[in-house]
Amino acid sequence: MKAKIHVTLKPGILDPQGKAIEHALATLGFANAGNVRMGKYLELDINEAAKDKAEAQVKAMCEKLLANTIIEEYRYELQ
């Protein structure tokens, strides 16, 4: 089973990289682009056939290591 995980800063937390990208986009003429949030994307294989078990593991991975839940939130897809 493959897990696709997105980690982003929580809403309301300053994202200096997102802001810089937003300014760059505006410079390029994409003035209508706003609220850029920059995050991380991780992909991993789990040797687990049962979806609920795989999901529990991915959740634990996110909580323990992949995201710092003080400042970040995460979402994932399992395929």
């Binding site: 300053l14 200096p16 990289q17 810089a20 003080i70």
Partner: peptide, 16 residues
Amino acid sequence: LEAGLLPGAMLRNRSL
């Protein structure tokens, strides 16, 4: 901070 021995977290510098 990451180990939870102190509270809070670090973000990228405002200036990047």
